[in-house]
């Protein structure tokens, strides 16, 4: 059976199914129980699995991750929610200091299989701290995987894989895409390999890399340029920010020789930089043009009055693709 679901519903489906499949999976976070989460992502879990497995915590992000680490060490599989990624920095010490390191500290004797879900990103006219895109912070920590879905169906499948993964996974949900569109999502169990990018459409003249909420304006720009110029563009959805799928990145650029990277986050030291460094390491001699980046700027994410000017738009992406084709 297939249903048309938005991303919130698709993630909710994954949580329901994994909690049903495995008694050791617990959901933990602020307002995720009775309230079903501020975005309703955890709706119905409390009623179905009860308060001991759907844990409404006191308001403390480090406490949420720190206790989740203990639960994971003791054999549970916590799926923690940070209400907004802008509040997640309070748990960073626990992530970097312990979740990411217990495996190496004990040479595999103690592991920390847990997921930290967090809505991230701009475009929803929200308060300060509710609009940032900071995947680079988490991607820089060895021992942590960072996954960013872009559609209801890949969000569902990737979350199932993240819950089953033996290591900590930061699962960043593009809140701008939460209810933006619906997609058919199968009731049947689905997983997707973490660490693999997805070729959304194949092409021969230029590659565009994007992820998360940037996939929608990117798709639009790619479509426009193709329609207007009759070129063939390869579009790759990164899906996993860390570890980056270097082979898919290099393989595509070897084929097309031209490349544009789209990143909502501030420009410097982010995944876009890492993609370009990967191309430099593995495919430099195939390039016909410099790699272009379309990114946020290295300024504080502005209050929402100015966010539309800050966020990469299909127009900016369109122009970057054309300039790279014309180089």
């Amino acid at each position: 059976m297939r249903n048309k679901l938005n991303m919130v519903q698709a993630i909710n489906l994954a949580l329901h199914q994994e909690m049903g499949n495995d008694d050791s999976v617990v959901a933990i976070g602020q307002d995720i129980g009775v309230n079903g989460g501020v975005f309703r992502v955890t709706e119905g879990l409390y009623e179905k699995y009860g308060e001991s497995r759907v844990i409404d915590t006191p308001l403390a992000e480090s406490g949420i991750l720190g206790t989740s680490i203990g639960m994971a060490v003791a054999g549970l599989k916590p799926v923690a929610e940070m209400q907004f990624s802008g509040f997640s920095y309070l748990m960073f010490g626990q992530l970097e200091g312990h979740a990411a390191r217990l495996r190496s500290r004990t040479q595999g004797a103690i592991t920390v299989p847990l997921v930290v879900r967090m809505p991230y990103g701009g475009g929803v006219r929200a308060l300060e701290h509710h609009s940032e895109s900071r995947e680079a912070i988490y991607g820089h920590t060895p021992g942590v995987k960072v996954v960013i879905p872009s559609t209801p169906s890949n969000a569902r499948a990737l979350l199932v894989s993240a819950i089953r993964d033996p290591d900590p996974v930061i699962f960043m949900e593009p809140k701008r895409s939460y209810r933006a569109f619906r997609e058919e999502v199968s009731e049947e169990e689905q997983t997707m390999e973490i660490g693999k990018a997805q070729v959304v459409q194949e092409g021969t003249d230029l590659t565009v890399f994007a992820w998360g909420a940037m996939m929608r304006p990117t798709l639009q720009a790619v479509q426009e340029v193709q329609d207007q110029r009759g070129v063939s563009i390869e579009l790759i959805d990164l899906l996993t920010i860390s570890p980056l799928d270097g082979d898919t990145i290099a393989g595509s650029v070897e084929k097309t020789g031209r490349c544009v990277v789209i990143q909502e986050a501030p420009r410097s030291l982010g995944p876009a930089s890492e993609i370009i460094a990967t191309i430099n390491d593995k495919a430099l001699m195939y390039l016909e043009a410099p790699v272009r980046r379309v990114t946020g700027y290295d300024v504080a994410t502005p209050y929402f009055g100015r966010e539309n000017a800050y966020l990469p738009t299909s127009g900016r992406i369109h122009r970057a693709i054309e300039e790279t084709l014309d180089f």
Binding site: I55, G63, T67, G70, H98
Partner: peptide
């Protein structure tokens, strides 16, 4: 201290 509490919760 937080890890201890998480372990105790699992128990």
């Amino acid at each position: 201290a937080l890890h201890a509490v998480g372990i105790a919760y699992a128990m």
